[in-house]
Design a protein around this nucleic acid. Structure first.
Length: 366
DNA sequence: CACTCGTGGCA
DNA sequence: TTGCCAAGAGT
């Protein structure tokens, strides 16, 4: 790791901000510095690319123009607006934060990163982003871009996968950030990280800050940032039961904790929970699921094995293989079942994860 | 601290 | 097909 003197820091700030003034992106959430707008965009942008976020942001702002609108909305409506973005706890935490602002803060945003971190769903990165962009506090906003950009500029070889490495980057960037324009400085680093200083195919030769990029000057910029690998997704096998009761679809609302919390799917049963032999036949699966429905839900299901390849859906840490069953449920009460029945048009209004859309499309149900 | 929590794009 | 990456936070 190298260090910069005061003159180099000033030179870097000027070069970066001049470039940002000329080439910075015009994004929907950059039309003003309203903390609500900054907040919503930063939450959406967590682990999500800009081009994916733009249409979601525009729809979200029409539906929920203020913190109060967000706080008052039915959760199902929020989840529907978030449908397809992933990491659904983000939007549920946003509503908790909105209510927290109204009740504990009299509707007024705290203006420092230290206070913003106390709010639900706002961690060190988002606190720094809001504080610097909306309130002009000279604090770093350390995200993946900042890790990548500064690790290359200064040849920092600490493992960015380790939580303690954040403190090192916060310390370093705090010495370099512009105190006159901290929000623009942080956003310029992000624009740099998504244009010239990308992870795989950087274009440093044309970068406005290439003369500051020590890793590039040494010819080893792809060695940065240093990051340990994550384990690959664990395989999990499910049965999806696409069943109707009186021509209405049987859907279940997932638990309020864990994966895809509070989203709607058809009943998904881990095959491991069915107590089958390793070499079970399709008819064994059908019988086991019918038995499971009777025992767990008090529902009389008549199921059919759906031919063809199963649906494959990969999450960050799980790879699901999903075998479909069609079926019909006898008319009865749903007291022991965590769900309801819906017509097709009703079904389409439910907030559902992508994996559920994939299951319906795969088995061409209607 | 290590693990959990989605989805789309790309080589 | 696989692996990795993309404006992270909660537990």
């Amino acid at each position: 790791m190298i260090e910069w003197d005061a003159a180099t820091i000033k030179d870097f700030q000027t070069t970066l901000l001049d470039w940002f003034d000329q080439e910075g992106r015009d994004l929907p959430w950059r039309h003003d510095h309203e903390p609500y707008h900054v907040w919503v965009s930063e939450i959406m942008l967590q682990q999500t690319q800009v081009q994916t976020v733009i249409p979601y942001y525009q729809r979200f702002m029409k539906l929920f123009p203020t913190v109060a609108d967000l706080a008052a909305a039915p959760e199902s409506q929020l989840l529907k607006a978030w449908e397809g973005l992933g990491y659904y706890s983000r939007v549920r935490n946003m509503q908790r934060c909105a209510k927290q602002l109204l009740t504990d803060y009299d509707g007024q945003w705290p203006q420092t990163a230290a206070e913003l971190t106390e709010l639900i769903g706002i961690g060190p990165y988002t606190a720094g982003a809001i504080a610097s962009i909306a309130f002009n506090e000279p604090v770093p906003a350390v995200d993946g871009n900042a890790y990548r950009v500064f690790s290359r500029l200064l040849k920092i070889d600490a493992d960015i996968a380790k939580p303690q490495t954040r403190a090192l980057f916060e310390h370093v960037i705090s010495q370099i950030i512009s105190h006159e324009r901290p929000g623009d400085f942080n956003q310029a680093i992000m624009d740099l990280g998504s244009s010239y200083m990308t992870a795989r195919q950087p274009d440093t030769a044309h970068s406005p800050v290439k003369r500051f990029n020590q890793a590039y000057l040494d010819g080893d910029e792809l060695a940065y940032p240093v990051k340990t690998k994550k384990p690959r997704p664990k395989p999990v096998a499910y049965v999806a039961v696409l069943a109707k009761m009186q021509d209405r679809w049987l859907m279940t609302k997932r638990p309020s904790n864990g994966m895809l919390a509070n989203l709607w799917t058809v009943p998904l049963i881990p095959i491991a929970d069915l107590g089958l032999d390793d070499d079970y036949q399709p008819t064994d699966l059908v019988t086991a699921v019918e038995t499971y429905f009777k025992r767990e839900y008090q529902l009389q299901l008549t199921a059919q094995y759906l031919a063809g390849r199963p649906v494959i859906h990969t999450f960050t840490h799980q790879k699901w293989t999903i075998q479909g069953l069609g079926g019909q449920v006898m008319l009865s009460d749903l007291a022991y079942f965590a769900g309801q029945t819906f017509s097709l048009s009703e079904r389409q209004r439910l907030p559902m994860p992508k994996v559920q859309e994939k299951i319906f499309a795969h088995y061409e149900t209607d």
